[in-house]
């Protein structure tokens, strides 16, 4: 697939690539549809109820009908909202979410762009979403959404720091920012073992980045009604929801690639199972964890949240970097 990128851009080439992107979009949409279904089912089961079961067999068509409903809804906009920004915000939130998937190596062959700075690309692009969120919060001209937008801006920027710092350990170990190289470096042992501290920090910071429980403050229903997207409805609202779940897809992929050995089997003797299956299994575990946390956890408090990022996660991440650096230097015999 990557070989296409290296060829001269011809019509067929571009067509192929666009088709592949559309295919990925469909896969992602399919994932989002059934992630929402699965989420509602799992949380339902944990709460001793069956979850959606009315639309279609076993409720499988529930999300599809929900999305259809959203798409058919009237496109409402508050009278005093900033028209241009109000329209721009969902796009700004969603596009980077999809764009980050370009560098994700799902297996050693399925990858769109094999960038040398894959990790950096992900982190750089994903911060653009904050702009979308804060734009939405401001443009809606609603006090709740303004507070929600400010909260998420503060939260997402703060947690980005420990998120990046926790990956530095892996980059030090691998000596590369390329996601494929990072996976290949995990042939013997997955990064979760030597980088356990980094893994924990990454997991927590990722929750905050995704605005998911227990860090779902920006959309804290009981306080801010719905946070930054309180004035959005119809397909604009669907875009925000889509962005949230696509980020979950992206973050799940990233965590599998960085810490869980990507498509590599748990033991070399099990490599008769296709790599994509391995990838999906690991990915599913992460997604399940999301739902599980959501069914159990209460929400963090806004002021404690910031303290936690700067006073706990960041020092731990920095300590992890130092530790990794020392160990690597020691192994290389410089000490």
């Amino acid at each position: 697939m990557s070989s296409w990128l290296e060829q001269a851009p011809s019509l067929t080439n571009v067509l192929h690539y666009s088709l592949a992107a559309v295919a990925l979009l469909l896969v992602v949409l399919g994932f989002v549809t059934y992630a929402i279904y699965f989420e509602r089912k799992v949380i339902g089961w944990m709460q001793l109820r069956p979850g959606p079961n009315r639309v279609g067999p076993l409720g499988l068509l529930q999300t599809i009908s929900d999305v259809t409903k959203l798409l058919l809804k009237e496109d409402t906009r508050p009278k005093h909202a900033d028209k241009a920004l109000f329209t721009l915000a969902p796009i700004l939130a969603y596009s980077p979410a999809f764009a980050v998937l370009a560098v994700m190596p799902f297996t050693d062959t399925i990858q769109f762009a094999d960038l040398g700075v894959g990790v950096l690309y992900y982190i750089a692009l994903s911060s653009i979403t904050v702009m979308g969120v804060i734009t939405a919060g401001w443009a809606s001209n609603n006090k709740y959404s303004l507070i929600g937008g400010m909260r998420s801006a503060a939260q997402m920027i703060s947690y980005e720091v420990p998120l990046v710092m926790s990956v530095v350990g892996i980059i030090l170990m691998t000596g590369s920012l390329n996601l494929k190289d990072i996976v290949y470096a995990q042939q013997d042992v997955w990064n979760i073992v030597p980088q356990f501290l980094g893994f924990i920090v990454f997991l927590i910071a990722a929750q905050a980045e995704l605005n998911r429980s227990p860090f779902d403050l920006p959309e804290a229903e009981s306080e801010l009604v719905a946070g930054y997207h309180v004035e959005y409805s119809g397909f604009r609202f669907a875009m925000f929801m889509l962005a949230e779940y696509v980020y979950m897809f992206g973050m799940g992929t990233l965590i599998v690639v960085l810490f869980l050995g990507g498509w590599l089997p748990i033991h070399p003797s099990l490599d008769f199972i296709p790599p994509i299956i391995w990838f999906i299994i690991k990915f599913m575990f992460y997604v399940f964890l999301q739902f599980w946390l959501r069914a159990t956890m209460p929400r963090f408090r806004a002021d404690q949240l910031m303290g936690f990022a700067w006073k706990v996660l960041l020092p731990v991440a920095l300590f992890n970097i130092m530790l990794t650096a020392f160990v690597i230097t020691y192994q290389n015999g410089f000490m």
Binding site: W45, L48, R49, L293, T296
Partner: peptide, 20 residues
Amino acid sequence: GFAKGLGYTLKKLSEKKITT
């Protein structure tokens, strides 16, 4: 503390549903 809570919800996953 929160790990115990997670254990509790996980145990409920397979329990009999109480809805009518």
